[in-house]
Write a protein that binds this DNA or RNA. Structure first.
Lengths: 183, 183
DNA sequence: AACGAAAGTCAACAGTCGTTGACAAAAATA
DNA sequence: TATTTTTGTCAACGACTGTTGACTTTCGTT
């Protein structure tokens, strides 16, 4: 319970950094073990294989802090979590980056979809409450991920230069409309 | 110039159907040739390789019809193009589906980004015009792709059941805010 | 110090990948 | 019909994938 945990941690750290940014099937076991300075056979030994290592990466995702905020701070928190940490430095620990990088994946796409529904959409729906809560929650997530996608993946010039504060303000303006109750 | 063009067309058709939905690196040459009923060696012969076949797929993308619409129909057209054709049937010919499936790709990501900037963001910016046009165009694309991403890739329950008409109305509401001039 | 369990190393496996070159069949040209 | 060009077929290549089993080294326990 002493030496192996260290290498396990090194593997998970390297795996998260690569899996979360490049996507599951675009990263090889040898990429990870090379970065971690560990033999490739240990992945199968300790995690049962490549997929097990990926799941170990998903095991310790913190809950979305916007979900525990007060009602009038919910949108601000949500917008902040999508506007601020999208610099290359913090990408390795950003859950939303990981979700974007792994939806398309033919092997992990299903698991990712369930994760978004269970950890983001469903809690947000209950948090919002009221008529059409499910639809409004989905619409808010659309705005959040849309801006993130355009900024990070498509790297649109119109959004690349914006500061996190400016971006957060824009997201809040759009998010308010998305959450508007129309009934 | 008669028999080979037929097989070339078969290859491009099969390639587009697979590349555009699953993503470039998630599709093998043998997947395509198997679907087209053609030998795998012909890909390298006629298109110079896998990448050449993918580029041949991108060669004949029609211009975005929203860009040629009148000023007050621009948003409606844009929203329609993102709301309507996202059924599994028409996916193989939907450019936006292809863009979403290939941004993450380590080999084609760069090309896709340039394509979005050149074919979508830049023309839309010039089309909108006025102060902050570039930022407002980027924000509108964020909303458009955000809804598409949530509906198609993440398959959020809150959006999956919506009809194209309902979805279009929601996108228009959000798009109006995205295009608002704030100066 | 001697034993046994744990941790790490190494080579090799079976499979898939994109691509190639030699070859056979078909069509067009003469 | 004979010849040349086009079109398609086949097997195999080297590189890479995830995974396995036998091996050596290291460590804790008796």
């Amino acid at each position: 319970m002493s030496k192996s945990t260290s290498t396990k941690a090194k593997l998970v750290a390297a795996a998260r950094e690569l899996f979360w940014t490049r996507g599951y099937s675009n990263v090889s076991v040898r990429d990870i073990t090379g970065k971690a300075g560990v033999d490739a056979a240990l992945v199968s030994r300790y995690f049962g294989g490549k997929q097990g290592l990926f799941e170990a990466t998903l095991a310790e995702i913190p809950p979305w802090d916007a979900l525990t905020a007060s009602s009038d701070e919910l949108l601000a928190k949500a917008a902040e979590s999508f506007a601020h940490p999208f610099d290359p430095e913090a990408d390795a620990t950003n859950v939303f980056t990981m979700l974007l990088a792994n939806v398309i994946d033919p092997e992990m796409g299903g698991m990712i979809r369930e994760l978004v529904q269970a950890k983001l959409a469903d809690p947000l729906t209950k948090r919002i409450d009221g008529p059409g809560a499910r639809e409004r929650a989905a619409l808010l997530l659309s705005v959040l991920f849309g801006v993130a996608l355009m900024r990070k993946n498509f790297q649109l010039e119109g959004l690349a230069g914006k500061s996190p504060e400016q971006l957060q303000a824009e997201i809040i303006r759009l998010g308010r409309v998305a959450l508007e109750c129309r009934d």
